[in-house]
Each structure stands twice: as C-alpha cells, then as structure tokens.
Nucleic acid binder design. Structure first.
Lengths: 333, 333
DNA sequence: CTGAAAGCGCTTACAG
DNA sequence: CTGAAAGCGCTTACAG
C-alpha cells in the first residue's frame, strides 16, 4: 500500500494526499476527509524509508553497548527504550562485546542507516575513550565517562550513593562500621569508599579495621570477609558492602556465626539487584543506581542535542537508598 | 557524502560508480579501482534508506518482546542480536510491556520501517495469541508458542531438561527424590514435572510425598518447602527444584537443619542463572535453557523463511545439564 | 565498458 | 485549494 494507492482511491493527486495526511493546512476539509478514509481503508502506513530519504531524519537512534551481557547495560537499555518509545523513536541495538573493530563496524553500519543520534552505554562509571570524532550526529555517553570533556556523559553518583548508605547507618546510631567491597581497580569501588569515608569523618567516626576490605564482587568474598571481620572486631555493629552479592554473603556468614542481622550488625548492600537483595535473608537495605532512569536521562539529553541544544561535561544522577530489614525496618506510619 | 560525490571524484557517472562499488561484473578494472579509491577517500557509506527503497529489503528485523524486563527475554535477545550481527542485519528493539495496544502500535511502526521480518519473544514456553495475521513478512516465535500451528515456534524443551536432571540424580543412586517448584499455572512447572515423573516411572521410583510441591519461584518458598520435606520425610536423599532460586533457598534450609549437601541430600536447580547458581553454597547443579541459543536458532529459522523456506510447527530445543557441587562433582580426569 | 533515464515512495516549492 | 514536477540517494534495465 503506497500513497499512490491512497491518492487513486481518494481521487486526488499524491501531492494532495500527502498534504492531507500530514495535516498541512492547504487542503479542503472534505478532500482531507476522503484521503483519510482512503488511507484508513487501505491500512496505509507511510514508508519511513522514503520519508527519511527526504527529511534526512529517520527517528531512529543507535544504542551501542560494550557488553550487553553484563548486569548493568540492560536496565539502562530498558530505560532508554522506554523513553524513546514514548517519543516515537526506534532503537537500533548493537553490542560491540568489548571489541574495538566490531564497535567501529557498528558505528559505520548505524551511520549508513542514517540514525539521528547515538547513545553509548558503558558498564561502569569508568572512563572510556571518546568516539565522537567518528560520528557526525549527536552522541550521549551513559554509565561510562567519555575521555573528552566536550562530550556529554551521564553517570550514576556513586559517591553520593555511598553517602546515603553511610548516613543511614550513622543515623541508626551505628558506630563501628566496616566496609567490604570489590576490586580497588573499579572506580565504583573507589568512589563508594570516598563517600563512605567522608560521612564517617563528618560524624567523627573511623572505619573499622582502618581500611576497606577490597576483594571481589561475589558472595563468596562477602562470606569470607565477614567471617574475618567478626573474628577480628567483635564490637562491629554495621557492614556497608560494595554490592548486593557481597552483602548477601556477609549476611549468611554472620547468621552462621550467631550474629543477628540487623539487631547485632546492620548490613547495607549496593545495586538493589532485586532478585538478590529482596529475596535475601534478611532482605537487604541497599543503594539503587536507578539505571533505568539513567537511560531515560540520556535520552532526554540526546533529544535536547537533536533539537539544537547540546550539552557537555558530566552529569551525576543521584542514587536512591532502599531501606529493607537488614538495617531494621522503618517504623510503620 | 553521496554516490554523486564519489562519481564526480572518480570522473564517472553515478551508474558506473554504483556498479563498481557493488562488484557487478560490467566495469573496467581500472575504472573500478578509481571508484573504490574515491569512495575510500571520502569514507563513503551508501545510504541504506535509498537502497532499501529500491530493493524492498532493509536488512533490519523487528524484535518484539512482551516483557523485556523479565529474566528470560534478555538472553534470547542477546543470542538473536549476536546471530543477526553476524549476518549484517540490524535489530529494531520494541518492548510492548504486556500491553496489547502498545504491541499493535509497534507492529505498525516496524512495518512502516519496512523490516524484513519479526521475532516475537515470549517470557515462557506458554501459549500466546498469534499475531501473524497482521504481519505480511516472516515471523518466528521464540520461547512462547503461537496459538496458530501454521506459525513457527521455537521453544525450550522443559520436559527433556527435567529428564536430564532426574536421570542425573537416579544415576547417582538417589532413590528418595522430591520436587519443589513454582506455581502450577506455569507451563514450565508442569512440563518439568512431566519429565521428572516419566524418568521416575522408568526407574521404578515414585516421588517423595506423592505430589510435587507447587509454590512460588522464590528462595523463600524453597526454604520453607525444604524444611517441610526434611521434617516429614527424613529419608529423602535428593530434591529437584523448579528453578535456581528455589534450589538456593532449599540448600540454605538444609544446611541449617544439619543436612549436608550433596552428601545427605543432592539438589538440582533449573535455569542456570549464573549469579545465583554458581555463587550459591554449594554451587548448584542445574539445567540450562540455553536461551542465547534459542535466540540464535530463531534467527536461523527467520533467515530460512526470508530465503523462501518457511517452516511451521514447534521446535523444541534441548536443554543442557550443568553439573556442579550440589550433586557431587564429577570425578577429576 | 559506460552513462542517460526511469523509478523506489514520499515531500515540497511552485504554478495555476 | 489542487496537481505537475523536481528531487532525496541509490540501482537497474537499456542504449550506445
């Protein structure tokens, strides 16, 4: 079904049919009606390729990830897809799988497909090489900071998230707080430590053991480190963990050591990885990166750039504290 | 950069430039060379819209999910994206979020974008209404069975997966086997029971307790049901669980009851949800649905249909048993 | 072997 | 208000 068919059925020219369908003023009301009916009758859908060829706009954006299989890219994608769908934009999804050649290939492909813009999804707040040089349309980086300050990067505020968690513990009168986290090579681990230490200092407290326990992002490490902690520091009353897996492991180990959570020792995780955090025993208080909103925020900024108002620099989106039983439930209201 | 620019730089007509770039025979070798060089120099990328307008093929497929946020759609998407990328096809991703209106909207959008075919991703093997009537291009259903037997549905073989799990337990000389699973309303739960009971019958065994324990897909239910089982049936020596969360909960409850896993009671999960199954204590033997391969299989069949060889009916892709410590490690070799 | 012409489906000045 | 014509960037018969 093409516009020609519609025009023929309505007894007008394709030019008039086009104008009628696109609600441009210069068409007689009854002509428009006839065209609309014809289009309806034929279930006419304008060919987007032809439109794009003329307008140079395809209402399509390319979403390029490095590691779609990772845990973080996906919620971002979800949020972006949502936001784009609401604006009648479509997403072309490409997963470079950490391969630079493949990434270049996808950039070319997406450009050949005339996408209106790019969203580059990282898998942590860490720095990543800018690729904007190769791309003549607007680009937004999300959950991964472009090395080029002229680019726009939308990141999660890990330092702020850790502040929220620590303030929560301090507010619950916990004084002997320890920290178990992932490898120090991760910016996420370091930023969270920064936020934690800042709040402890403001509260006149110091970290139990003096140093964060850097390790892996696993339950196994959480169990191991928690056992070490309760053995070495019997007076510990809270553990802030760098992610939910560590926290789940720590909770398990503590329970096995006869320590009650949260009565004796409160635990806070990070990530709000639902299946882990909410189904843990006890359910974990944790920090939510709000990844979906990160995705939609990126889309918002991409639209702004498409509308001629590009931004640059780094935007740090706040995290949210999710309180569950592992730090004691809030009083009912 | 358009073909016109390339032709001008190479000193030929656009027609000749087109032929040279598309490796059609009828061009003089040195002419082709000049065109290729010009294209290279200008980093020419042919406009896919123009090509699509002529050929009627866009090398784009629409991937429509019902619930992208669920745990199962995503690996399927990954597998499909991989397989499509290898064939230079792009994916337009749409998440209907369980809303029929939104789904219809996306179907129209994707058709207007002239996609070459559709992949409809379900979130369980359950039946789902066919939407092929509305779609004039090839459609493949994956992990969700179309109600129309003329459609092609690619499913995971849950019954076979449960057989693998049960045969494994029986092979380990377990005789008192129980089953904890999710709601009976799920076809996945029912199909797995069918496979389990078949193997038990073939082995002259019967299910401990007579009936599967239907409940929820959660750790909490796993813990609860496992406690009931060990109390009511002290001689139980294996529990086959309907998913990994249930299995993780069951393992935890058994350990707390002083039962050793796998020495006293072996546990098998389902789904091979890595973060849960491998990081559990002990790591879980489980059944992998091979969702990524499900996605790539769907793509393979979609290509076959695009090449004029459509199939129909139901394809059941085998599951894989992943053996870990919860049933005893295989002897080292 | 090369290029002028027609055409894919649509939109947009421009005449009338 | 309506429609013939040009054109978006490309490909493909068809002449030469």
């Amino acid at each position: 079904m093409t516009l020609t068919d519609v025009a023929r059925l309505a007894g007008v020219s394709v030019a008039t049919a086009s104008k009628a369908l696109n609600a441009r003023g210069e068409v007689a009301p009854d002509t428009r009606l006839r065209v609309l009916q014809a289009a309806n009758q034929l279930s006419f859908q304008p060919n987007v390729l032809a439109r794009g060829l003329i307008s140079g706009r395809t209402r399509t954006i390319g979403l390029l990830t490095d590691e779609l299989g990772g845990r973080f890219a996906f919620p971002i994608l979800l949020g972006a897809e949502n936001a784009l769908g609401n604006e009648q934009m479509s997403v072309l999804l490409c997963d470079a799988r950490g391969d630079a050649i493949r990434r270049q290939h996808y950039i070319r492909t997406l450009l050949a497909r005339q996408v209106d813009g790019f969203i580059i999804v990282g898998d942590s707040n860490d720095l990543r090489p800018s690729i904007s040089r190769d791309i003549p349309v607007p680009v937004v980086y999300v959950y991964g900071q472009s090395t080029d300050p002229n680019d726009l990067s939308v990141l999660a505020d890990d330092e702020g998230g850790a502040r929220l968690a620590t303030e929560h513990l301090v507010g619950l009168r916990r004084r002997r707080i320890a920290h178990i986290t992932g490898p120090q090579s991760y910016r996420a681990a370091r930023d969270r430590v920064t936020g934690l230490l800042a709040v402890l200092a403001e509260s006149g407290l110091s970290l139990v053991g003096g140093e964060p326990l850097y390790g892996e992002w696993s339950q196994r490490w959480g169990r191991h480190a928690a056992r070490m902690l309760v053995t070495a520091h019997r007076d510990i009353d809270a553990i802030f963990c760098g992610n939910d897996q560590i926290a789940a492991g720590a909770a398990q180990a503590l329970l096995e050591h006869g320590r009650r959570v949260p009565d004796d020792i409160a635990i806070v995780g990070y990530d709000n990885w639902e299946d882990m955090a909410a189904d843990c025993r006890p359910p974990l208080t944790t920090v939510d990166l709000d990844l979906q909103r990160l995705g939609s925020t990126a889309v918002t900024h991409l639209f702004a750039a498409l509308d001629g108002s590009p931004a640059s620099g780094v935007i740090r989106q706040p995290c949210r504290l999710v309180v569950r039983e592992s730090t004691g439930l809030l009083p009912a209201h």
